[in-house]
Each structure stands twice: as structure tokens, then as C-alpha cells.
């Protein structure tokens, strides 16, 4: 081992890295919000009796879950580019991650809806609740509890997956790390520092999630 560690450049650029970490958090969080809404719609589409809706949902879910996430980003980057659709690096990452999140979350939501007994809905309707009230007040809170941990996992996964952004030129944490590393050649130091930041972000998410779960699901 004749590699000499030089930490000073990394320390000097720590503010840049932390700022890039915020971008990582931002794009992951946004992609989760969009992925949750789309995932809910996909789950309902897959459960619906409408054939085209089911077919559309199945195609999306299958592609999102069974192809490399990197290829999904490339599709929204270079694939669409080939048809003259040019997304900014940020949008490529956001759209790609949202697509992937929606596919995974849709399956979780579908399982959640199927796990809530039909009679819960019937009981709510028998009290005079509208379909909307029964769904939002009785069914969805129970679905949410079932999908809560899978959603937390997906959020962690989104943070880690967002590092693929460096392959499409977006300078979130991984992209910024690569940019700085290649300028100074302190490659190992930069990636080690970035790994620590990823680790801390993930631990914070898991901790917050546990705290929230404790507040939300005291009923069991």
C-alpha cells in the first residue's frame, strides 16, 4: 500500500458535498411523492376490471421492477433524446426514479388493498358512509399501515439509486463527488466521504420513519 491519504481537499470541499447531499435528498423525496401518487393509481388500475388500464399498469410495473434502474434512467435520458425529447439532467433523474418507485410501490399498494378485508368497507358503507368516505377513512389508513415499511425501504432505495445520476451528468452527491474527485484525483477520499454522507442520510430516514411509525401506529 503506497497510497497516501490526503484529506485536506476533501475537508475544504465538505460544504459542496453536503449541499449536493441536499440535492440527493430533494430528488429522492420528490421522486417518492410522485412515485406514491402514480403507484396508487397503477395499483388501482391493476385491480380495475378495465383491460387497457390493467394492461398499461402491468407493463409499467414489469418494466420498472425487472430492468436495471440505470437503463431506466438512460431511457429517459438518451432514449427520449433520440426522439428529440431532451430532458435536463435533473428531470432525467427525477422522471427515472419516479418511474421506478411507482412500479415498486404499485405492487405494495395492491397487496395492501387486497389485505384489507372487504367487510371493513361494507361495515363503513352500512353506517351510511359514502364510497369516498369509506375508502379514505377506513380502507386507506389500513393500507397505509401495511405499506408503511415497504415505503420506507423504497425511500432508502431511492436515495441510493439516485447515485446513478452521475451517469447522466446530474451533480447530486454522487455526481458532485465524481466531479471533485476527477479534478483533484483524490478519488478514494472523496468517495469514502460521500459514502459516509449516504450512510448518515439513510440512518436519518430510518430513524425518522421509526419515530413516525411509533406515533402513527400505536394501536397495535
Amino acid at each position: 500500500m503506497d497510497y497516501n491519504f490526503h484529506w485536506r481537499p476533501v475537508f475544504n470541499k465538505l460544504p459542496d458535498l453536503l449541499e449536493a447531499g441536499l440535492l440527493t435528498l430533494e430528488v429522492s423525496l420528490l421522486s417518492m411523492v410522485i412515485g406514491t401518487v402514480l403507484g396508487l393509481l397503477l395499483a388501482l388500475a391493476k385491480l380495475s376490471p378495465l383491460k387497457p388500464a390493467r394492461w398499461f399498469a402491468i407493463t409499467w410495473i414489469e418494466l420498472a421492477r425487472n430492468t436495471p434502474a440505470l437503463f431506466q434512467l438512460f431511457f429517459f435520458g438518451f432514449g427520449l433524446g433520440a426522439f428529440g425529447w431532451h430532458l435536463s439532467p435533473f428531470l432525467i433523474v427525477l422522471v427515472g426514479l419516479s418511474f421506478n418507485n411507482a412500479g415498486y410501490l404499485a405492487e405494495n399498494f395492491r397487496g395492501g388493498f387486497q389485505a384489507v378485508p372487504e367487510n371493513q368497507y361494507r361495515a363503513a358503507r352500512s353506517l351510511g358512509m359514502t364510497a369516498f368516505q369509506a375508502t379514505t377513512r377506513i380502507v386507506i389508513p389500513q393500507v397505509f399501515k401495511i405499506v408503511y415499511h415497504p415505503m420506507t425501504n423504497q425511500m432508502v432505495w431511492a436515495v441510493l439509486m439516485s447515485s446513478l445520476a452521475m451517469m447522466v451528468g446530474y451533480r447530486e452527491l454522487a455526481g458532485e463527488t465524481q466531479f471533485l474527485a476527477s479534478k483533484t484525483f483524490r478519488i478514494f477520499e472523496y468517495f469514502l466521504a460521500a459514502a459516509v454522507i449516504y450512510y448518515v442520510i439513510v440512518k436519518i430516514i430510518l430513524g425518522l420513519s421509526r419515530l413516525l411509525a411509533w406515533r402513527l401506529f400505536r394501536y397495535e
Binding site: 367487510n119 361495515a123 352500512s126 358512509m129 377513512r137 389508513p141 389500513q142 394501536y219
Partner: peptide
């Protein structure tokens, strides 16, 4: 209506179970 499978709403306390429909319906 009362069903065979007691369908209490698991995410609500007993009081909330009973109070919900009077309030929102």
C-alpha cells in the same frame, strides 16, 4: 347492521369507532 365477523375499525379507539359515522355522516 352487525356482521358475523366483528368489523371494528382497527386504527380507531372504541370511542372513535362509534363517533366517526355520527360526525362525518
Amino acid at each position: 347492521m352487525v356482521f358475523q365477523q366483528w368489523n371494528s375499525f382497527p386504527h380507531l379507539t372504541a370511542l372513535e369507532n362509534v363517533a366517526l359515522a355520527p360526525r362525518i355522516v
